[in-house]
């Protein structure tokens, strides 16, 4: 049997809400068609923790901390085509609302004023991802090949985009799919 190699697809969410992933699941029964065409690598659906060589990488969420950068660079290194999906990945989105607040004020508000389980102290465990001064859009950290706008992009849009890409066409989204009013 010389079956055609399946496209390998990886996804992740950085500083995002997984809403874009939910929207991907929202393609409903077409998930079966998708599974006929692709194999999932690292993604929350498979719970695979590290990304191997892939054809398409889909990144949700902005870049908020050092760990996000490690994940993002791993994706960029392994994925031939990297897609930034949703408002947070493209512009920083809702998490970037913290960009106008001084980081020290954020930490004080969260850890010092009310106090946590461990008392009033700022956690400094090396296992915790260290936050950036601001939340950055994905394209400022790695090269991005495609941007899928929306909060979240609709299931139809994600489906149209993926099928175009998988079947080797330049993805084309109708105006109607890009309207949000």
């Amino acid at each position: 049997m010389n079956e055609k190699r399946k496209i390998r697809l990886a996804t992740c969410s950085l500083a995002g809400c997984f809403g874009c992933h939910m929207s991907l699941l929202d393609i409903d029964e077409k998930l079966f068609d998708l599974l006929g065409m692709v194999e999932f690598d690292r993604t929350p659906f498979t719970d695979i923790k590290r990304c191997g060589p892939c054809d398409i990488g889909i990144v949700e969420g902005g870049v908020s901390n050092a760990e996000n950068v490690h994940v993002l660079k791993e994706f960029r290194k392994n994925c031939k085509v990297l897609v930034a999906i949703g408002a947070c990945a493209i512009t920083g989105g809702v998490p970037a609302l913290r960009n106008n607040i001084d980081l020290w004020d954020c930490f004080q508000e969260v850890y010092l004023y009310e106090g946590g389980l461990e008392g009033n102290q700022i956690p400094n465990d090396p296992e915790l991802p260290l936050p950036f001064d601001k939340v950055y859009p994905v394209y400022e950290v790695v090269k991005v090949d495609y941007f899928l706008p929306g909060c979240p992009p609709s299931a139809d849009m994600i489906w149209k985009f993926l099928t175009d890409l998988i079947e080797g066409r330049e993805p084309k989204l109708d105006y109607e799919m890009l309207r949000y009013d």
Partner: peptide, 15 residues
């Protein structure tokens, strides 16, 4: 861009 958080947390580990 990590400098601020390093100062706040006092961390200087590899991560």
């Amino acid at each position: 861009a990590l400098e601020t958080a390093r100062n706040i947390t006092g961390r200087d580990d590899a991560w």
